[in-house]
Structures are given as structure tokens and as C-alpha cells.
């Protein structure tokens, strides 16, 4: 089993989606995350081993990204490979046989239409074993509140790319804390800093996706 986890983790980390994919060139012609996940289920391995392989692979590429040893394109290829493996787990998530660590509700704050950073965080967090509810961009406070209502116990992540829109996080956090005082709120985005996060009452801040996963893991530990 540990061989399988390691093999799948390698495919995810390197962005090897399936046998047909030409990337990365040194794994050309070999099975990718898609085939490995399928074969694992056929061989009777527990579905959560697939999740373990995905988490390990995404953790490795996420750490490299944090250290500037990998860049956004590699992170995206890894996420694509992870999705190919995770697709095989959908029925097990639905039946409850495989459980996620928790749920992150994520969205770009009201007034802001930028979504690439938010999407990166969503992918890495999903690869970290969490369910992600993506509310998209220009998300109003009401929409965040409705999502918390629909997903009790979830954690909220907010992103902003503009200095004009990051200030909208403060009122959104205030409204969330008023109605759901126990809900943890993480913030991020290019202009956001730890000092700003502290000032507006956010519970966590990370400059990169892997940092967000570390905060979430700590929360659910």
C-alpha cells in the first residue's frame, strides 16, 4: 500500500495526469494519477489510500511552491493530476465512506473579480484533503453567510487583489463573527498582510496556498 501511495503521490507532485499525457517528459508512456487510482480500487485498496496519495503529492508540490522551487504552472499541473485521481473517489465521498478533513468556503471578496489566486488556494486545499465550496468572485457578505448556513462547521477563506476591495473583508468578517462567532475566517491575496489580517479580525493569513493548508490542518487536528 505504501508503494501505491508513493507512486500516486509522485504522479500528483509531477503533474502526471494519465498515460496519454506527455507531461512530464520523463514519465511519458507510464500510468498517471487517473490509471493508478482506478487500478487501486480494482485491486481492492481502501479508497482513502487514494486520498492519502493525493494529499502527499499536493503537500510536496505545495511546499516547493512556497519555497520558490516550483511555480504556478507546475502547481496547476499537479492539481490536474490530483483531480484525475480524486474523480474516482466521488462516489465514496457521497456515500461517506471517505471523509474529508473539513470544509472550506472560499470566495473573492465583493467588488473584486480576480480569481486566479483564489483558485490556486482552492486546488491546494482540496488536495490537502478538504472539501472546497467555491463561491466564485465578487462574493457578497450575504452569500458567505448563506454558505456557512448551508455548511455548518465550515471554515471561510476570503481573497482580494485590490487595496480597494480588501477593505470589504473587514465588514464581511464582522458580519460573519456576529452571526457565527465560532467560524474561522482566513484571508489572503497580494495586498493582504498579517498586520492587516490582525487588524480586521481575521483568524488566519497566509501568503501562499500551502500556508493555508497548514492553518486548516492545525484547526482540524
Amino acid at each position: 500500500m505504501s508503494d501505491f501511495v508513493e507512486q500516486l503521490a509522485l504522479c500528483v507532485e509531477r503533474g502526471k495526469v494519465n498515460k496519454e499525457s506527455l507531461y512530464p517528459p520523463d514519465l511519458k508512456g507510464q500510468d498517471g494519477a487517473d490509471e493508478l487510482a482506478k487500478q487501486a480500487l480494482e485491486r481492492g485498496l481502501q479508497p482513502d489510500t487514494i486520498l492519502k496519495g493525493c494529499i502527499l503529492g499536493m503537500d510536496r508540490i505545495g511546499s516547493k511552491f512556497s519555497q520558490n522551487k516550483a511555480f504556478v504552472p507546475e502547481l496547476l499541473m499537479a492539481a490536474k493530476a490530483m483531480t484525475a485521481a480524486m474523480d474516482h473517489l466521488k462516489p465514496f465521498f457521497q456515500s461517506g465512506e471517505v471523509k474529508r478533513k473539513g470544509t472550506l468556503i472560499i470566495g473573492t471578496i465583493a467588488g473584486d473579480l480576480h480569481d486566479i489566486g483564489k483558485n490556486l488556494v482552492a486546488m491546494v486545499v482540496e488536495g490537502g484533503g478538504f472539501e472546497v465550496v467555491d463561491l466564485g468572485t465578487d462574493v457578497s457578505t450575504e452569500k458567505f453567510l448563506a454558505a456557512i448556513e448551508a455548511h455548518p462547521g465550515s471554515i471561510v477563506g476570503m481573497s482580494a487583489l485590490l487595496t480597494t476591495t480588501m477593505v470589504n473583508m473587514e465588514s464581511a468578517i464582522r458580519a460573519i463573527k456576529e452571526k457565527y462567532p465560532d467560524t474561522m475566517v482566513l484571508v489572503g491575496g497580494a495586498p493582504v498582510t498579517q498586520q492587516f489580517a490582525d487588524r480586521i479580525g481575521a483568524d488566519g493569513y497566509s501568503p501562499d496556498p500551502q500556508g493555508a493548508v497548514a492553518i486548516l490542518n492545525k484547526k482540524v487536528a
Binding site: V72, P73, L76, M77, A79, K80, D115, I116, N119, M123
Partner: peptide, 14 residues
């Protein structure tokens, strides 16, 4: 491209 799940190409177009 991103909505279709091809984040890699979508990001590069951006």
C-alpha cells in the same frame, strides 16, 4: 478554459 477544468492553459492565457 478554467471553467472547463483546464487551469493550466487558462492561467497561461491570462
Amino acid at each position: 478554459l478554467m471553467n472547463d477544468g483546464d487551469f493550466f492553459a487558462g492561467y497561461l492565457v491570462d
